[in-house]
Design a protein around this nucleic acid. Structure first.
Lengths: 361, 361
DNA sequence: ATGAAAGCGCTAACAT
DNA sequence: ATGTTAGCGCTTTCAT
């Protein structure tokens, strides 16, 4: 008894046609006469025939599979990204391979090497690799980067410039004059951009901004940085991401420092949890899921254009997605001081009063 | 200029050996003399040779790829599961394919069909398919289920019986006598088990438990169910998962009902966010990441045993992982009443006092 | 519109 | 220990 799964040859035999006709009936139905096509499909279904994806990929070189590399699955930010990517891939009938690069460029390289050939292209999210390295990857395979601008690689960027500006103006209008920025990883494009925006605004709006970091984008790092912020005597903190902000919130709460009574906190991304932490987080909402979806769509586009003659576009427009400020409970008026007061004048008095004032909320 | 990526034949030619020797040098190094093996490796490296995973999979039938199917990537519970699975897979040099079945058995079937042959086996997490269907899958390929007990499929179960018992006793000792259980999806194995444990304990400890549900395991469903719980006049709520619990917390807060002053809440899973919601959630911590890892390890074990002669074990021991109670801020003494008082006696007086009492916390 | 034939890059008996 | 020889299941020219 032949219990193996049927192949095109089995189907062909039963239909009295050549195997290549069966192949065509599935991959290029329009090149088979309607009559035989229908008969083949019917018999194939009856026999329980399933095209073998691997065998299909070998001669064609197309696997209908995409690789998604993230630096840290642990980070809920990437949960949203994965979700968007998975949906876009599934919608196009593509399979998604997920890999964690553990924040290292080395691991990223290893995975790309291993997967090259097994996937039609990559989405590299928040890549930790050098521009140089990314260009090498780009030379060998189809790739889209997220949260990086590396010419000429196509990319999806979440641009927080507008949001950052809104955040700063929000804080300024609440009377804050001295603000800390908790910076993200050194290589982050968005981090650099946000910091620049903040500095520009500081000049314009008579704000002082101090930079704390670079920091790992985690809750734990946020806790530690909260102490630095307190020491730096700011009335508001803007963070690279929500994880940091949540860490700040927790640390300040442990120290009995009231948010937003004494310190206001603005996060970034609006990840799962930003709306139910305490106090709920004012944050720069980022369209993370859209970013994931856009990245896959962009990649799919590249794959589609991938005719044998048509050359790959040498410089693609990046997709830029904006953030916008979502105001919740973690921001409020600067602690009872005259609005125009210079930050310098009060530095000394603030330290150590935290606990006492904390109770007054 | 030959710009194609080198194959074993190219390497073989340069080494002056046969292609099969090159193949062996990579897949079964021990069957090649150290000298030639080293030379082959050296030259291959120099030429930039990379084994082609697809070509490798075709004759061998082994793809070194695993499929992980989850009903809803959106749910952070699965984030932890994915993480564990990805790590275990990566550690074994396996690639993980991720798919969302969108809570439907139909989608699950489609994906399994499509991926069969392209992966060496599946991890089906919280499958929505029928037992019957799962057995069919089991007959065709290697598969491990998570959160389902379907004989004879190997499975990983998170058993909350002990934890549920602890939770109920925790509440009983705090003076709660009437408790609501917010049930999860109808087909959930753990839900049924938890409910049974609760009922058994209720008899034993003189508790009344009311069941609300089945409910979708989401924050939104939790909000709606919170109102039912209030109407049912309970002093404590135990939920199927943390998402429901967080929904309850938010709804009660919106209604001005104090937690745990008026109502205590116990969640389940200890997902990301359970520790920083407000109040922080007392919950049955589940080793979700371990479950993901165990499932992959179990599957890998099955694959390893998969010799041509050795028959697949017909009935495997399930891996059972226990939960345990993590006490945080969302549980406290039952609202000021004599501990032994019968639940019946007070029903009428409670309604509507919520707001007033809420302020007293 | 369909058939014949040659691989895709590799593995796996079977020889030697 | 290494070479020979068939394929794995499918796609893809090239014929007809």
């Amino acid at each position: 008894m032949s219990e193996r799964t049927p192949t095109i040859h089995d189907v062909a035999a039963r239909c009295g046609v050549n195997a290549s006709t069966v192949s065509r009936a599935f991959s290029r139905p329009e090149r088979v006469s309607p009559a035989t096509r229908d008969r083949i499909h019917a018999i194939a279904a009856e026999m329980g025939y399933r095209p073998n994806a691997i065998a299909r990929a070998l001669p064609s070189g197309r696997t209908r599979t995409l690789g998604l590399l993230v630096p840290d699955i642990t980070n809920p930010f990437f949960l949203d990204l994965i979700r968007g990517a998975e949906r876009a891939a599934a919608a196009a009938g593509y399979t998604l391979v997920l890999a964690d690069t553990e924040e290292t460029s080395q691991q990223e390289t290893t995975v790309v090497e291993r997967l090259t050939g097994a996937v039609d292209g990559f989405v590299l999210a928040s890549s930790r690799a050098s521009d140089q390295r990314l260009r090498e990857v780009h030379a060998k395979t189809r790739v889209v980067v997220v949260n990086r601008r590396v010419r000429p690689l196509p990319g999806v960027l979440i641009d927080s410039a507008l949001g950052t500006r809104q955040a700063a103006e929000h804080l300024a209008s609440l009377g804050h004059r001295r603000i800390a920025y908790l910076a993200g990883p050194r290589a982050s494009w968005s981090d650099a951009r946000r910091w620049r925006t903040l500095q520009a605004l500081a000049r314009h709006r008579d704000l002082e901004v101090v930079r704390i970091g670079p920091l790992a984008p985690t809750v734990e790092a946020g806790k530690a940085a909260a102490d630095s912020a307190v020491l730096d005597d700011v009335t508001a903190v803007v963070t690279f991401n929500d994880l940091l902000a949540i860490g700040v919130l927790r640390r300040l709460r442990d120290r009995g420092i009231d948010v937003p009574g004494q310190i206001s906190v603005v996060g970034c991304d609006d990840i799962f949890g930003a709306d139910f932490c305490h106090p709920s987080l004012t944050t720069l909402a980022a369209p993370i899921e859209s970013a994931g979806r856009s990245a896959v769509d962009l990649l799919l586009g590249l794959l589609g254009y991938d005719g044998p003659d048509r050359p790959r576009p040498d410089d693609t427009e990046d997709v830029v997605l904006p953030t916008s400020l979502t105001i919740r409970e973690s921001t409020g008026p600067a602690p009872g001081r005259a609005r125009g007061r210079s930050p310098r004048q009060r530095a000394a008095t603030d330290r150590g009063t935290a606990k006492a004032v904390g109770a007054s909320r």
